[in-house]
Design a protein around this nucleic acid. Sequence first.
DNA 1: AAGTGGTCTAGACCACCCG
DNA 2: GGGTGGTCTAGACCACTTT
Lengths: 262, 262
Amino acid sequence: MSSIPLNADNPAQPAAGTGAATPAFSPLYQQIKGLILQSLQQGEWKPGEAIPSEMELAARFRVSQGTVRKAIDELAAENLVMRRQGKGTFVATHAEQHVQYRFLKLMPDTGDARGEGRAQRQVIDCKRVRATADVARALALRSADPVIQARRVLSFVGVPTILEDIWLPGQAFKGLTADQLASYQGPTYAMFEIDFGVRMVRAEEKIRAVLPDPEQAAVLKVAPGTPLLSVERIAYTYNDVPMELRRGLYLTDTHHYRNELS
Amino acid sequence: MSSIPLNADNPAQPAAGTGAATPAFSPLYQQIKGLILQSLQQGEWKPGEAIPSEMELAARFRVSQGTVRKAIDELAAENLVMRRQGKGTFVATHAEQHVQYRFLKLMPDTGDARGEGRAQRQVIDCKRVRATADVARALALRSADPVIQARRVLSFVGVPTILEDIWLPGQAFKGLTADQLASYQGPTYAMFEIDFGVRMVRAEEKIRAVLPDPEQAAVLKVAPGTPLLSVERIAYTYNDVPMELRRGLYLTDTHHYRNELS
DNA sequence: AAGTGGTCTAGACCACCCG
DNA sequence: GGGTGGTCTAGACCACTTT
């Protein structure tokens, strides 16, 4: 087992890699964080499972519990793990997370809960295609690489509200079907974790106001001149690897995109 | 000076108020955080100034440096203070902050820096009015209470891009003039700090896609059917007191609203 | 050299959860 | 009662900034 400190009697030595040299100085807890992160992305612990206790990790890495604690603090702040007092620390998951639909910021204008009767999904199509230049760039692929493209509509209380086009790297999502997209209960990102082992960790969104083209207007059943929110999202797994491009059109008559600034 | 622990030989005792009882359990560092917060909102240290060192605060509150540290950690995470290694901990300010325009998420499509030649401001008007019902509700005032209402346009590289209507509680912002809004260099929120002692700490935004009315279209010099981003912001000072309502219309032809999810 | 924030440790005890 | 995360302390040393 790779231990980190070279001299237990001389705590807080600047740096000491695990064989591979650590070039710039980084605090011990950052190195521990890196090691835990590595185990996370290698799937040593699966989403929803508990990771070893702080004491165990401290013993494994030969550091104090406080140092492990600070490492886990940061992972928890980034939503990569979840702590539960008295129970343990768990690998975060898009399923069974108190905040379902973590990345969906669209809220109904009335009723502070976003829930009020889940969305109905309707998958319009799902096919294998070759990446166009812009899709390839967003997903860090080469042009013409295989990607899976899907289109679906989300309705709230029967009202079509979101039209989404989704692009996924063909390699990682080989075999994804329209049926799978439609029938899975709960967040699509949870399905990605379970069926493909792909965990989305963070995302970036670019938001604009646009008018729908005739086809989009028809699908959403709105007049052609209806202003819509265009939300382009790139979702990333571990290590900032982009794994999904999603272009959404949101009807904001009875909903709004909610954001908190600080 | 009010000390907190009653018994220094028995560290980590559950709770011990400063005279006034602390009803529910809250860790010591949270209580310290509350005390520091209190000093912040009472203006014991002004924006940009350094607060006492961790050792000094530890001595003042009769706790260990580590406990003060954890309290300040949270304040720093909430952007209420800023730490600078080797120098001290400083009261956060909207002026001289590396991230100017902290609350403005509109970015040019090209050029990752938001800067590229600051915005030009044009104040259209600024007057004292009585709060309408919705403005009063947003600002936690009574209907017909005095408020200051301002309208201005921000242009980037000469192109009118943002039309903003701003409402401020008349009491706290007595004497605010159009000239003041127009001539101040730097973030308006910095001017609020300096001229009115009001520090905005966080904000909430509701975003929609809308069409401008004829007047709005004229001011922004766009065609009537141009879709625009409607951004309604409520900004809060300490203690979650709302101090500003702002309704913005963003032109998203060459800009986009950028958001990071995690 | 002195002061500040930042890291690390070791040990104690508290709050919570479960068997 | 025993395990887990959470809090608190005291003391040491590191990294950065200023005098």
